[in-house]
Structure formats: C-alpha cells, structure tokens
C-alpha cells in the first residue's frame, strides 16, 4: 500500500476486547476469489486493482438514487473503530480492527422507501485487474444481500480502513461490508452497487450451493456445514498448537442480534 494518510476512528462500544490479529495475519490470509482461490492469492495479486476513482451506485427503492463517492458514504469525521470477531464458514477465525461507518447512516442519507425489504450488494467486475474473474469460479459479479433490519442494525458497517490504514486491496478496498455475526462470505468486498429491493436478493454462495450456504449464513455452532462441523473454530495466529475454541452462537453477538430472528427455525433458514 502507498503511504497514504492514516485513518482514525472513534472508539466504539461495539468493539470486542479480544486481542486483534496482526496486520500481517489479516492482510495475508484472505478469501477473495476475484484474485484467486488460494488464501495467499489476494495478497499477491490485489495490488493490480485501481481503487481511485471509485463510486458506488445506490439505487432501487430509495429516495435519492445516484452515484456516491467514498467521502459521501464514509466521511472522515464519522469514522469509527470497530474491533470485531470474524468467523469464516471454513471454521477459522480472526479478530479484526475495522474502521468504518454504520451502513444505516448512508441508507438513511439516501432515504429508504417504505416498500424496501432487502439490500443487495455487488462487487466490481474488472477481469483485467481481478485475475480470478477470468475464470468462471463463481458467477461474477459476486453478490450478497441482507434483510433490511440486518442492514440497519448498528453492528453492520461499511469498512474503509483496517488498523489505521485505508483498507488494503486484498481486504476489499476501498469499501466493504462487515456483518460480524454472519460467516465471512456475507461481508462482500469492493462494493460498486447497493440496491434496495422488495424481494430476497441473489447471493453468490447461496446460489452456487444452497444446501451448504444459506441466505442468512448466521454463525451457528449447532447447524453444521454439510461437509464439516461448525461447533469449533481454529483462531488464526495461534501457532502450531493453538488449539480450537468453541464457536459462539451468532459469533458471540447473540445479545445484540438474536431478536432479529425470533420465531425463525434457524436450522432451516440457516
């Protein structure tokens, strides 16, 4: 990364007091298939991505659709530091100090129409800079979605920074979603489009393997991935014999988010 201006975010009560992983861990162990399927591929190849200029097309059921710049979405003076646990669907985890803004703040600014029920997100498609997109590994563009109440939840943020740096490319620069109680793949990277809809949006992994990846993808130790257990996880950075830790319901955020899913059978709507 260039010696860009540092970022500072106001401390937040939503942060965990767990020890964050090192910047080296967080920037060298990534799932970002746009740059290849290997965990090291994003660190190796993501520097090819141009992130400036960047704009996000916000549309659908909103009052003020349009093209928004980063400064509109995440103004410097609104940035917060959010130290969140990240649980990957592959049963590993990290703790990451993000810098960003609540997604709700920009949604409120563009004005959500009363008929909107979901938010759809889309990643950039630029195969000449994102070499993984030259092969049909996934159905590009990568797309994800949230229910509106999930999107408006104060834990849900759009991140533009990591530690005190602008977001490194391999972590989803310049703007990514972070939903800490869901498996990592829901937290879509390098967002270029946000669309408010009235029906459940397309979600890439869910569409690829609906039996394995649900639309909700809430972290849930009781609902296993068909091919591996989700009961425990291995924390990255623990060394050779760091062991496994129990996976927590909603990744430890149950107090804040469990009420969103009251009355739902989470083993069916997983």
């Amino acid at each position: 990364a260039s010696p860009a201006l540092g970022l500072t975010g106001k401390p937040s009560g939503f942060s965990t007091d767990a020890e964050p992983n090192s910047l080296k861990d967080i920037t060298n162990y990534n799932n970002f298939y746009e740059f290849g399927t290997g965990k090291e591929d994003p660190a190796r190849y993501a520097s090819a991505l141009t992130t400036d200029p960047w704009s996000v097309e916000i549309g659908g059921l909103v009052e003020r659709p349009g093209s928004y710049g980063l400064e509109d979405i995440a103004p410097d003076n609104e940035l917060e530091e959010r130290i969140y646990r990240l649980r990957c669907v592959e049963a590993w985890s990290m703790v990451i100090p993000w810098i960003g803004v609540p997604l709700a703040s920009i949604l409120n600014r563009v004005g959500v129409q009363p008929s909107a029920k979901y938010v759809a997100f889309e990643t950039l498609v630029r195969p000449e800079e994102m070499r993984g997109q030259k092969r049909p590994i996934l159905d590009w563009p990568y797309r994800e979605g949230l229910r509106l109440d999930e999107a408006m939840h104060p834990l849900t943020i759009l991140a533009t920074g990591l530690y005190s740096d602008p977001l490194p490319n391999q972590n989803g620069a310049p703007l990514r979603l972070v939903v800490p109680w869901k498996y990592g793949f829901k937290s879509i990277k390098s967002i270029v489009r946000i669309t408010l809809t009235d029906s459940e949006p397309f979600a890439t992994w869910n569409a690829l393997q609906p039996r394995e990846y649900g639309f909700y993808a809430n972290v849930n130790p009781q609902v296993d991935h068909p091919r591996w257990s989700q009961a425990t996880e291995r924390k990255i950075g623990g060394g050779l014999f760091g062991g496994r830790q129990e996976t927590l319901m909603f990744n430890g955020y149950a107090d804040q988010v469990a009420s969103l899913y009251e009355g739902m059978d989470l083993s069916r709507q997983f």
């Binding site: 591996w228 257990s229 009961a231 291995r234 014999f241 062991g243 496994r244």
Partner: peptide, 21 residues
C-alpha cells in the same frame, strides 16, 4: 489429530462418520 483438531476425540469421531470427505 493434533494440530488441527487438538485431540477433540468426540468431535473427530462424529465428524468422520458424518463428513463424506
């Protein structure tokens, strides 16, 4: 057994029966 599953025998046993791979 050791580094990945840190000898969680019960989970390993369940996993082997349940997980095709």
């Amino acid at each position: 057994l050791s580094m990945d599953m840190s000898f969680l025998w019960a989970q390993m046993g369940r996993d082997i029966i349940k997980r095709p791979y």
